[in-house]
């Protein structure tokens, strides 16, 4: 579910970066304030653990497919939300650095989508209240599955919103949501089951490892309220849109409608564009041209110039490659 650089606009990416760095700063402060120095190596090693655990797959019963643990919820159960958020963020950062999973601009989106929702929404609002003090049995399994599913649903919904707000992809809101949500429901169930099983194992093998009370204080009521509101808006929104759509068929139908909508819209279009970044629900249709003035001149492109654009594009690419290779050759000769 890694968001990619290529699918987001600088505005959306930047906003999410601000959100992610803010959260990182806040969590770092919280973890520091907990004054538990043992956390520093523990967080680091658990980050590496999640990395390694993601490489190991297990068979999902009766499906023939396989899954692996994402680790967000497990980390939160082990470390509490603040430290877990930092660990998830560091895993995503290393993945972006070394495997190009996602990308640097999309890193903010990914940290929010995969870190914030499990650690600060699903964990305090579902996992903790359901498990209560019980550390085993049905409560643990229900809590874990519920928290994993909800966390991932919100995360994948956020991917949909961010993609649409960016306007790079043509995918209509409804069908994209319909594609993403069920897949991530299944992933969430698997994640929840695996998390519960590992936590249950830890309860038996090493009960003291799960105690991180200093960082488990409940969130302040205001914050909880805000989070709840965002969950409600999110879920009502997704229910509302998906209830009135009929999948891809609808999407394609809508596309033919697109042609009529296109031309008269220049006026509203500009206004919409400004709103677009703030309210992610509006762009239910692909925008034709994105940002600058150059782009607005787009429909007037003549065939001739676009052919020359193509030729020129290819030749500059060749020139770019040539520059790179010559630099390399020169260095080798030195």
């Amino acid at each position: 579910m890694h968001m990619a650089d290529a699918l987001i606009s600088p505005a959306v990416g930047g906003m999410m970066w601000v959100a992610a760095t803010g959260l990182i700063a806040w969590c770092s402060k919280k973890v520091r304030a907990a004054c538990d120095d043992r956390l520093i190596p523990l967080m680091g090693v658990l980050g590496a653990f999640v990395f390694a655990a993601q490489m190991i797959n297990f068979a999902i019963p009766a499906t023939g497919s396989s899954g692996h643990i994402g680790g967000g919820l497990l980390l939160t159960a082990l470390l509490g939300p603040h430290a877990a958020f930092l660990v998830i963020a560091s895993v995503l950062t290393v993945q972006a650095f070394f495997f190009a999973d996602g990308g640097l601009l999309a890193l903010g989106c990914n940290i929010v989508n995969l870190g914030f929702f499990p650690a600060f929404v699903a964990y305090p609002l579902l996992y903790l209240p359901i498990t209560k003090s019980a550390k085993n049995g049905a409560r643990l399994w229900i809590a874990s599955v519920a928290a994993a599913v909800v966390g991932l649903q919100m995360g994948s919904f956020a991917v949909v919103l961010q993609t649409l707000a960016s306007g790079v992809s043509d995918l209509p809101f409804g069908s994209f949501a319909l594609l993403m949500q069920p897949i991530h429901f299944a992933i969430g169930v698997v994640e929840g089951l695996a998390t519960a099983a590992v936590v249950a194992f830890m309860v038996r093998a090493r009960p003291e490892a799960l105690v991180t009370d200093s960082l488990r204080k409940p969130l302040r009521p205001v914050l909880t309220g805000l989070l709840l509101a965002s969950v409600l808006i999110g879920s009502v929104g997704s229910w509302f849109t998906s209830s009135q759509l009929d999948g891809l068929e609808w999407a394609i139908q809508k596309t033919s409608g697109n042609e009529e909508m296109e031309t008269p819209e220049t006026g509203t279009h500009c206004r919409l564009e400004k709103v677009q970044e703030k309210t992610a629900f509006l762009p239910d249709y692909g925008f034709k041209d994105a940002d600058s003035e150059e782009a607005n001149a787009w429909p007037a492109v003549e065939i001739g110039t676009s052919v020359s654009g193509l030729v020129g594009g290819l030749s500059t690419l060749a020139i770019a490659a040539l520059i790179g290779f010559s630099l390399k050759a020169r260095r080798r000769n030195e």
């Binding site: 090693v45 658990l46 655990a53 190991i56 297990f58 999902i60 590992v198 093998a205 090493r206 490892a209």
Partner: peptide, 29 residues
């Protein structure tokens, strides 16, 4: 592919080893 049961034991043990290692690193620090 591992069955969920084996998988959890494997991941669980890996987790315990990781936690133990973190403790040893902390001592070294």
């Amino acid at each position: 592919k591992l069955s969920l049961r084996v998988y959890c034991a494997l991941i669980g043990h890996l987790l315990i080893r990781s936690i133990d290692r973190a403790q040893r690193i902390y001592r070294a620090m």
